[in-house]
């Protein structure tokens, strides 16, 4: 095959990709690039870092800190509980029950959003059923120190969909720990603790990291649940950016862009770490 027809073949092959690529460019890539560019331009089109400086005021810094705090906390809780619960599901003797629990996790992890927020109001609101239950049967009065509309309420709601996500991620990781490794380690003199310390946990570590980071990103980018539950009471980055779009409060759009770019950086880092960690995990458990 001579060079020109090879060229032709290559071009026609890539041409098949055009509709899809155009779509992605038009509605994803180009807008984001323009967004980033816009964050460095002022109203007259000159380069500036003013938006970022404006975004560094206490109000917005607090929202960033809140988002980071919420994401980190729910990711940590979700990881710890998820690993523990995931392990127990993995080791459950009945396969049918196992599959049911995994299906349940699959469904509940997608329940984020307004319905979830409202469900938590029903359950943990000032007249919520669990609130009532604690009051009447255990004499515990959780209000007003606790409020479902506060940071802690939001945490509990976020953990609701973080937990099953971790369960779904960690069960294949446990399955990837081959039985022969355990037997081989035992044969070489390791007891249960020595096995988990030297082999089990190191092999799980990449999956744990990947899971934590994914949970963090998941929480950081969430909007609907927080919007429904806390409205404007609690300041989060996603909510702030939302305000600049709907123009509910007078905001300089540039600040929204600056915050958006900041969010992209954080999310991008998470995704990058996730890729590296899950590749490592796959490499080890594939062989």
């Amino acid at each position: 095959m001579n060079n020109s027809s090879r060229w032709q073949k290559a071009i026609s092959a890539w041409a098949g990709l055009t509709p899809f690529l155009l779509f992605c460019l038009a509605f994803e890539i180009v807008p984001i690039i323009l967004l980033v560019r816009g964050s460095f331009l002022d109203k007259s089109g000159h380069l500036t870092t003013a938006h970022y400086v404006d975004a560094a005021t206490p109000l917005y810094l607090k929202s960033i800190w809140n988002s980071v705090k919420l994401s980190g906390l729910t990711a940590a809780i979700g990881t710890l509980l998820g690993v523990f619960i995931g392990y127990n599901i993995y080791r459950w003797p009945s396969k049918r029950v196992q599959e049911l629990l995994i299906t349940l996790s699959d469904v509940t992890t997608n329940f984020a959003g307004a319905p979830l927020a409202f469900a938590f109001i029903i359950v943990l609101g000032s007249n919520g059923i669990v609130t009532q239950f604690l009051l009447q049967y255990l004499g515990l009065k959780i209000y007003p120190t606790f409020s479902v509309y506060s940071f802690s309420g939001l945490t509990l709601a976020y953990v609701y969909f973080q937990l099953p996500l971790m369960v779904l991620l960690i069960i294949p990781a446990f399955a990837g720990i081959k039985k022969e490794w355990r037997e081989s380690a035992t044969n070489l003199g390791a007891n249960t603790f020595a096995f988990w310390w030297n082999i089990g946990i190191p092999i799980l570590a990449p999956s744990l990291l990947a899971g934590f980071v994914l949970l963090f990103a998941n929480a950081f980018g969430a909007y609907a649940t927080a919007y429904t539950l806390t409205g404007s009471r609690l300041s989060l980055v996603t909510l702030q950016i939302g305000f600049t779009i709907t123009g509910e409060v007078l905001h300089d759009p540039g600040i929204g862009q600056a915050l958006a770019v900041g969010s992209l950086l954080i999310m991008g880092t998470c995704i990058a770490i996730y890729q590296v960690a899950s590749n490592r995990a796959r490499q080890w458990t594939r062989r």
């Binding site: 022969e180 490794w181 037997e183 081989s184 030297n198 190191p202």
Partner: peptide, 14 residues
């Protein structure tokens, strides 16, 4: 007693 497994069972993280 030393044992050699069919699937080698080498620890991938070491």
């Amino acid at each position: 007693i030393g044992m050699v497994f069919q699937s080698y069972a080498l620890f991938p993280n070491m």
